[in-house]
Structures are given as C-alpha cells and as structure tokens.
C-alpha cells in the first residue's frame, strides 16, 4: 500500500474492498477508531489522526478542547464553562486540524445544552467534567469520529502510554503559533497515590494541591512534557485492544511541565453512569491488558535520592553535581 503506482482497475477493486472492510469494522466498534493511530511525542498531529478532538470556542476564541462521544454529544471540562459565560456564545469546531486554516472537512455547531457535573465547585475540585449537546448532530467521517467511553469498572494500568492532544500553550504563557496545528504528546499514566506523593514534593505553603478520587495523572516526573493552558477539556486517549478510550479529560496542573507536577485529568470512568444517564452514550467495557504494577517508586526514588547526601557519604555528594549536569544537557537535547 505504501508503493506509488497508477491505480489500475484491479487496484481500485482492492481499495474498494479495503474501504468496505473499514466500514464493517467501524460497524462493530463505533468508537475509538482512527484512520492513522500513530503516536509520537510532542509534535503536530496528522489531519484525521484524532478525529474525536474538538475545539470549543467562546466568543470566537478557542478556550478549551473536548472529545466527541456520539453524533450529538461532546465531553469537556466543567471549568471551561464558568457561570458568567452565556452558553449562546459557545461554538464547537469538529474535524479541525489547523485552527487558523479553513478546511472543508471541519464542521461547526453551536451548543444546545451545557451540562456541568453537579459536584463541580471550583478549579481543582471534583467533578471537572461537562457534557455539551450540539445544536444538530454531526455525520461521522474520516475527520469526525467518536472516542470510546470507558465503563465504570475500567482500569487502565499504570505506565500505560496514552496520548494527550490539544491546541494549548506550548510552554507556560506561550501560545501555539499560527497556523496552530493540533499537537499530540505521549504520556504514561501515573496512579493517583503516586501523583499525590509527587505533588507533596517542594509544596508551597498555602498552595496545597490534592489529587481527588475522580482524578488520574499522566506525564513525567522530571517534567518538560505536559498539557497546558488551552488543552483543558481535551482527551487523554488510551489504546486498549485496538481501540482508543477516553481515559481522562485535561483538567489542571501546577504550572506546565514542572518537575514532580504531572498533568491531572478527570478520570472519565468515574462518570460513566452520569454520562450514560444524561447523554445515552453507552460506555464500553475495556478489555483487560496487563496487570497494573505499583508505581509509587516514581515518587519514593526521589525521596531516597534526596536524602542520600545527608548520610554523609562522599560518593553521592560527588555524583550529584555530575548527575545534575547531565540532566541539564539532556534537557537541552530534548528542546
């Protein structure tokens, strides 16, 4: 298929069969299928790669991401819809790739309803999830397709490589440059317990952050790669058994990409029954892959390392500056 050749009649037939197979497959799995499910880290996506990703605009400006879960419903974050904002001023852009370019594949819908989860109180609280009903249903295409909703009992193993996507800042206070192509980043899942442990390292008094029951983390202990402002509401897509599941919704984080401060996501499966009840979208049982291994070592290793020089051993003291130097070099490389 990768070879370039004129499409003779035989080839056309072959293509037609493939297309049929494709639609047959989508018939079986009506969600979580992308035409090009290729994953890389921190780069521009390919058009159609994340067909459930939508852009939510307020007053014509991109404010948040969201995920298409059916012809009529989009899931996003509650904090994207502050009370003082009129819902008439929101729009949802589907099938978009570059926010600054017009593409015929893209569709725009206004929002008929915004359902913010009743448990949501403020930024950082539980229930940072919202359902949007589109003013009219969309037709699925190569560029517009829903993601699978995980069932309530779903559990994604720690360390699973998932992908976060969005049009948010590319560094603290730095917005994505025109033409603003959709960005994707591979991030491993981090358990809630470990994440709470990480957020307690170098915590500022008066600014405690707590990872609630309905949250999960993803990212890197050393920082550098993360979601940021403008990514909220967008998907944390996890691959299981050949399908993509909406494991998390971009919610918050201390700065962006800071060490020991991975991104925090709303754990979608917590709200499976609420979504089912409100939007009549059927959550999907997630196939078992591997058993989840404890990941507390991600945090404890840090603590053990930090205390080493205190023991008065010469070795670690000498090694520490060397390790830091290498760390910096590494950082430059990855820039």
């Amino acid at each position: 298929m990768a070879q370039r050749a004129d499409l003779g009649p035989k080839r056309l037939k072959a293509v037609a069969i493939l297309l049929l197979l494709g639609s047959f497959r989508s018939g079986l799995a009506s969600c979580g299928v992308a035409s090009q499910a290729r994953v890389t880290g921190g780069s521009s996506a390919v058009p159609g790669q994340w067909p459930w990703q939508v852009s939510i605009l307020f007053d014509g400006t991109h404010v948040c991401g969201g995920s298409l879960v059916s012809e009529k419903w989009v899931l996003s974050a509650a904090h994207c819809f502050p009370r003082e904002h009129q819902k008439e001023m929101y729009e949802v852009r589907l099938g978009a790739h570059q926010l600054d370019s017009f593409t015929p594949e893209a569709e725009v819908r206004t929002v008929a309803h915004v359902l913010v989860h009743p448990s949501y109180q403020q930024e950082g609280s539980q229930g940072d999830i919202a359902l949007l009903r589109l003013s009219s249903p969309v037709s699925f295409s190569r560029y517009i397709r829903p993601i699978c909703l995980p069932a309530a009992n779903a559990s994604f193993p720690n360390g699973l490589q998932c992908t976060v996507t969005g049009w948010g800042y590319v560094a603290s206070s730095v917005s994505l440059q025109a033409p603003r192509p959709l960005q994707q980043l591979e991030v491993p899942l981090i358990s809630r317990e470990t994440c709470n442990c990480l957020y307690n390292i170098n915590v500022k008094p008066g600014e405690p952050h707590y990872i609630q029951q309905d949250m999960v983390c993803a990212g890197y202990v050393k920082g550098g790669k993360d979601a940021c402002q403008g990514d909220s509401g967008g998907p944390l897509s996890c691959p299981v058994g050949g399908l993509w599941y909406l494991a998390g919704i971009v919610s918050w984080g201390d700065a962006c990409g800071a060490p020991n401060r991975p991104g925090v996501y709303t754990l979608t499966s917590t709200y499976a029954s609420w979504i089912h009840h409100q939007a009549e979208v059927q959550p999907r049982v997630v196939g078992q892959t591997q058993e989840s291994q404890p990941d507390i070592g991600l945090c404890r290793n840090h603590l053990a390392f930090a205390s080493a020089p205190a023991r008065g051993r010469l070795g670690p003291i000498l090694l520490l500056p060397l390790a830091l130097t290498l760390g910096l070099l590494h950082a430059h490389w990855e820039l």
């Binding site: 400006t61 991109h62 404010v63 948040c64 974050a77 904090h79 994207c80 403020q122 930024e123 950082g124 609280s125 948010g168 800042y169 917005s175 500022k204 008066g206 600014e207 405690p208 952050h209 979601a227 940021c228 402002q229 403008g230 990514d231 909220s232 509401g233 971009v250 919610s251 918050w252 984080g253 201390d254 962006c256 991104g263």
Partner: peptide
C-alpha cells in the same frame, strides 16, 4: 511572591483571555 492570589484559580488549563 511566585504566582499567586489563590492557588486554585491558576492551575486550570482552559485558555484565559489575553
């Protein structure tokens, strides 16, 4: 002080007005 005002208001990842 480093950032600010209230811890909660600055952590959310929606895009603020500029």
């Amino acid at each position: 002080k480093a950032s600010a005002v209230t811890a909660a208001i600055l952590i959310a990842r929606s895009s603020p007005p500029w």
